[in-house]
Nucleic acid binder design. Structure first.
Length: 727
DNA sequence: TTCTTACCTCTTTTT
DNA sequence: GAGGTAAGAA
């Protein structure tokens, strides 16, 4: 058989991985070493050379984008559809499993998926139901707790009682929340995985079937798996399947949401006879960029260790620019983007990366002024918009009336006279009877327990849902959506809002009709699923693109996290400031800086030809002023690879004038001799920058951002600060 | 009940 | 700076 189309484009190590015998395999794949290529070619090899049926192959990734890309590339290689092969995200495949086996999973057939916002509301409802003070038990925190436990595979009853009252209360909230979810037939993201795992584990027959079926399990981005995902993999792979894991411990950047790099280290123990292959040859970046990345990541301990190399030459040095403020930083970036375009490059070859989404605003404003088209990744996505979620709530209620979150959302949107008081009565009745809001409403109405007006409104609402369900039963999905937004009153409601926002909402609602005209593909193994449920699940699992015009040639803006897996000829990493990147939080918690460094490593290795690192000495963020030293990561890149550009002296410094003047007043008042922005040295904490002040005379305190220990308030009278320079 | 306003907190990353 | 909540007015 001719296998050249599978092997010809591969180097020795890649080929070794692709053609390896059955058995556990761990591929340590460095950035840009062709890991997706190895994965897809492995699948092609298994199918075309080893004769493995697509039916027996499962390949899993983290993002929809990666899954989609894998699917496309495999189809290209096989020159046919992937058919019954399971290729998708952990969440997508778990969802598929639960739809197929909803009975065994003890879920209603039309179970609904809660996105993060739905989940937060559900948690909030549970907290209120327990009569707890929301300021003491913020829904956000409780939600994080619940998700963290689920990611560990823990149910409330599994959590060890340490006698900590805070934790005990959180466990109670978790319990109440889970009860509410089960009652409503709602499943959150973490639950998809946990429920699938439990169902598989507790059903010998199912387990046997799937373990026998999936002879080959392939995982991408293995370093990002959390406890439950790893357990899921181990259970599915069983004793006899071949597991093929591709990952890079240096690119583990999701520790904060439970990812365990340790899974890579434990792999060889858990799968005896594991063969490890390293891919260190990089096909993406210049020698300079790789050397910088290698040096940077060397500062981390606990690495498996690897060194990227290339033979394409060193290329340009990395440029470092220290701007006066974020506006200056943005202008510098834009000028360099313009340079790139003027020398024949395209806009989409440039990417501007940042640590947090809040940083994008200034960049966007500057890009807008310069007339450069750009595209921002992240932020609000289509199916997360308020008006879209309103419409989806109606659709979800039509599919499953017990969905309490959708009930609460739709019941008075548009306003129909069902206020807090009425809703409160319904909630209480539901809680007491242990039934859904829908169910409780019906009983309250039957018992005539509401005042005339409220009673009428609730009755009309319920009739509306039933009527919508009947009227749309035989409609195509898009006509259905059109009918719903029209007859629910949502469209009219938003049309009344004459502002730009209102107009945009109306447009989005109309776009939802368009989205429904191309419903998602339902795999053959989920025959029970209605097009409506398929559409709703898809909306939750793939919240859609954020802002469009993908086809247009534009500058790419995104966080460092969302840049993982991508590559660009020209990359800017902005906000290279101590306290921002690495973030203040990571500096304060020991051991967290390593993950930030890996994030930086990810950013650096995105660049193919040219990398720019920029910082702003002064930045306004969240309405506060920050004066920062350069990120420590800058100093961890060997200076021979760095070329520092000095700011031009004729640039005005408007942002600096206000704090300076303010500081001047302080100087007169408290005679500290210090100004905001000034460099100082403390005998214990080392060097830092004054970022704020407070009080006068003997009580005067200054806020100093120290490079080594972060920001601290110091009383002038005791601090004994040594002044290093004037601001 | 609904709409408006003032105040408060909380700021990373996302399936 | 935004988003959410609470309180007050129509």
């Amino acid at each position: 058989m001719d296998v050249s189309h599978i092997l010809d484009s591969l180097n020795t190590e890649q080929r070794e991985a692709v053609t390896a015998d059955a058995g556990p395999l761990l591929i340590q794949a460095g950035a840009g070493s062709g890991k997706t290529r190895v994965l897809t070619h492995r699948i092609a090899w298994l199918n075309q050379v080893e004769g493995v049926s697509p039916f027996s192959i499962l390949a899993v990734t983290f993002t929809n984008k990666a899954a989609g890309e894998m699917r496309t590339r495999v189809q290209e290689l096989l020159n046919s559809s992937i058919g019954p092969m399971w290729v998708g995200t952990f969440h997508g495949l778990s969802h598929r499993f639960l739809r197929m086996h909803w009975k065994e999973a003890k879920l209603p057939q039309a179970f609904q998926i809660l996105d993060s916002e739905d989940q937060k509301r559900m948690v909030q409802r549970s907290i209120r139901g327990l009569d707890l003070d929301e300021t003491r038990w913020p829904p956000r925190t409780a939600m994080w707790y619940i998700n963290a436990k689920k990611d560990e595979g823990l149910r409330p009853e599994h959590i060890r009682d340490e006698g900590d009252p805070t934790e005990l209360q959180l466990i109670q909230i978790y319990k109440a929340y889970q009860t509410a979810c089960d009652l409503a037939g709602a499943v959150d993201f973490a639950e998809l995985l946990l429920r699938a795992l439990e169902t598989l584990r507790d059903n010998e027959e199912l387990l046997q079937h799937y373990q026998q079926r999936f002879q080959h399990v392939l995982v991408d981005e293995f370093q990002d798996t959390n406890t439950i995902q790893y357990a899921w993999l181990r259970l599915l792979a069983g004793q006899h399947s071949s597991i093929f894991a591709v990952g890079d411990d240096d690119q583990s950047i999701y520790g904060w949401r439970g990812a365990k790099v340790e899974n890579i280290l434990n792999f060889s123990h858990d799968f005896p006879g594991t063969h490890v292959i390293r891919l260190e040859r990089n096909y993406r970046s210049t020698g300079t960029i790789l050397k910088a990345a290698n040096s940077l990541i060397e500062y981390n301990s606990d690495r498996l260790g690897k060194n990227l190399w290339t033979d394409i030459g060193d290329g340009d040095p990395i440029t470092f620019y220290s701007a006066y403020n974020e506006g200056d930083e943005a202008n510098f970036v834009i000028e360099r983007v313009m340079d790139h375009i003027n020398t024949g490059g395209s806009r989409s070859e440039t990417a501007i990366l940042y640590r947090s989404n809040a940083q994008s605003r200034v960049l966007e404003e500057a890009l807008f002024r310069s007339g450069l088209p750009y595209r921002v990744y992240g932020g609000m996505r289509f199916f997360e918009r308020m008006e879209i979620k309103d419409a989806l709530a109606y659709m979800r209620l039509m599919s499953l009336a017990d969905d309490d979150i959708s009930f609460e959302r739709a019941v008075n949107q548009p306003p129909r006279g069902i206020g807090d008081k009425t809703l409160g009565q319904i909630r209480n009745a539901a809680r007491e009877a242990g039934v859904s809001l829908w169910h409780a409403s019906a009983e309250i109405l039957a018992a005539n327990a509401l005042k005339g007006r409220a009673s009428k409104a609730v009755g009309e609402f319920m009739k509306l849902i039933i009527k919508l369900r009947q009227e749309t039963a035989d409609m195509a999905l898009d006509s259905m959506v059109e009918h719903i937004i029209e007859h629910s009153g949502l469209l009219e409601h938003y049309k009344k809002d004459r502002s730009d926002k209102g107009e945009a909402r109306v447009e989005n609602l109309q776009e939802l009709v368009g989205a429904a005209s191309t419903p998602p593909e339902v795999p053959d193994d989920m025959p029970d699923m209605t097009p409506l449920d398929a559409f709703l699940s898809n909306a939750a699992l793939e919240a859609g693109e954020n802002q469009g015009d993908e086809w247009e040639d534009c500058v790419q803006l995104m966080t460092l996290h969302s840049a993982k897996g991508l590559e660009f000829p020209v990359v800017f990493i902005t906000g290279m400031e101590q306290g921002l990147f690495p973030s203040q939080r990571s500096i304060e918690e020991s051991g967290k800086v390593e993950e930030e460094r890996r994030l930086c490593y990810v950013g650096v290795t995105r660049a193919e030809r040219k990398l720019y690192l920029t910082m702003a000495e002064h930045r306004r963020l969240y309405g506060k002023d920050h004066f920062s030293a350069p990120s420590k990561f800058i100093s961890e890149i060997p200076s021979e690879h760095l070329q520092e550009i000095r700011p031009r002296m004729n640039v005005s410094r408007p942002m600096l004038q206000t704090p300076q003047r303010k500081a001047a007043t302080v100087r007169d008042d408290n005679k500290t001799g210090l100004t905001v922005g000034q460099r100082v040295r403390h005998s214990k904490f080392g060097e830092g920058t004054v970022t704020d002040y407070e009080g006068q005379g003997a009580h005067a305190r200054v806020f100093v951002n120290f490079e080594s220990v972060g920001s601290k308030w110091l009383v002038m009278a005791y601090a004994n600060l040594e002044v290093l320079s004037t601001a």
